[in-house]
Amino acid sequence: MNNMMKKCILITGASSGFGEACARRFAAAGSDLVLCARRLQRLETLVSSLPSSCRVHVQRLDVTDRKSVEAFVDQLPDDFREIDVLVNNAGLALGLEPAHESNLDDWETMVDTNIKGLMGMTRQILPGMVARRRGHIVNIGSVAGSWPYPGGNAYGASKAFVQQFSRGLRADLLGTPVRVSNIEPGLAETEFSLVRMKGDAQKAGDVYTDTHPLCAEDIAEIVYWVTSLPSHVNVNALEVMPVCQAWNPLAVDRTLGNEV
């Protein structure tokens, strides 16, 4: 029996990438969908391609706007108010400059989206899950939350927050049936790098040259699997990389000599 049939799934950042793929996967399972993103036209195009039997509510939303998030949740139609699964997918990386050359506006945008946006949506949805004694929070983290790399500075730090926040939620929710999972992808080919490179398609494409990266559908299948497990099973965290990716040895600089 499909236990996701008619469950209500809220997905942030649903206009592309992981969010769009998750919407398609849950729609295929017969779930009801609440989809939000900044690009309403992209959401409407997505909805037009979903099965006609799928009930969907879409709305333009910027998760960095706390008041808008509050209003969005407060004004959900009656048929979509009881959220069974929240997929906190909205997030981004901006730039790869070293910390001493980074744009502080980029750092603040990552914090506002990846941290504050995730917190705000979670805080709005979680009380209803606790009251109904059912629900699942799925946060889209990153291997960057555990494994730093040059230029990852604020982005990696924001995903480390997501990792620890997810653990904190699990601790707070002990004694309730509400589940929390942090999904941590590695190299994945979506619009992620295009956004990070601020529209430079050549630089974004170079990230994936001669690799076989994860795709959005891979992550959507993982999110679906985690949420469709029996209700007594909680996947705390799931780190996933393509086979072509692994950890490097610790970096050692041999140019400083006796300077340090």
Score class of each variant (00 low, 15 high):
60 R>G: 14
148 P>E: 00
161 F>Y: 14
198 K>A: 07
148 P>R: 04
181 S>C: 03
39 R>Q: 15
258 N>W: 12
221 E>R: 10
91 G>T: 10
210 D>R: 06
143 V>Q: 14
148 P>G: 07
77 P>S: 08
102 S>W: 07
239 E>N: 13
173 L>W: 01
52 S>G: 10
12 T>W: 00
37 A>W: 07
39 R>S: 13
107 W>I: 14
20 E>W: 11
102 S>R: 11
227 T>P: 08
89 N>H: 01
240 V>S: 07
140 I>R: 00
129 M>R: 06
54 C>T: 15
55 R>P: 02
68 S>Y: 00
196 R>W: 06
260 V>P: 00
158 S>G: 10
95 G>A: 06
224 Y>D: 03
126 L>N: 01
251 A>T: 10
34 V>K: 06
194 L>E: 06
23 A>F: 04
227 T>G: 06
116 K>M: 15
225 W>R: 14
180 V>T: 00
158 S>Y: 02
246 A>D: 15
77 P>W: 05
148 P>L: 03
14 A>K: 01
182 N>V: 09
212 H>W: 02
260 V>A: 02
254 R>W: 04
138 V>T: 06
50 L>R: 05
142 S>E: 12
194 L>N: 00
12 T>K: 01
260 V>Y: 03
214 L>Q: 01
255 T>Q: 12
101 E>W: 12
241 M>G: 03
108 E>V: 07
101 E>P: 10
44 E>I: 07
137 I>M: 07
86 L>P: 03
252 V>Q: 12
81 R>K: 12
86 L>D: 07
106 D>Q: 13
177 P>Q: 09
1 M>H: 06
216 A>T: 09
252 V>R: 11
165 F>L: 09
37 A>H: 02
25 R>F: 04
66 R>I: 13
176 T>M: 10
186 G>R: 14
139 N>I: 04
21 A>R: 14
171 A>P: 02
162 V>W: 08
152 G>I: 08
3 N>H: 14
163 Q>G: 13
204 A>V: 05
5 M>K: 15
119 M>L: 15
86 L>E: 08
168 G>P: 07
94 L>E: 03
195 V>S: 04
51 P>N: 05
241 M>L: 00
193 S>H: 01
153 N>Y: 14
197 M>F: 13
241 M>C: 04
116 K>F: 15
18 F>Y: 15
205 G>K: 05
216 A>W: 08
32 D>L: 09
17 G>T: 07
237 A>D: 12
118 L>I: 09
198 K>W: 05
57 H>Y: 14
104 L>Q: 09
229 L>S: 09
23 A>W: 05
191 E>A: 06
110 M>N: 09
70 E>N: 00
17 G>E: 04
174 L>I: 13
8 C>I: 08
180 V>K: 01
9 I>S: 11
81 R>S: 12
40 L>E: 15
57 H>S: 02
56 V>L: 04
8 C>G: 04
11 I>D: 02
224 Y>K: 05
28 A>Q: 09
64 T>Q: 13
54 C>Y: 10
23 A>D: 00
210 D>W: 00
238 L>M: 15
128 G>F: 01
197 M>N: 01
96 L>K: 06
18 F>L: 09
149 Y>G: 04
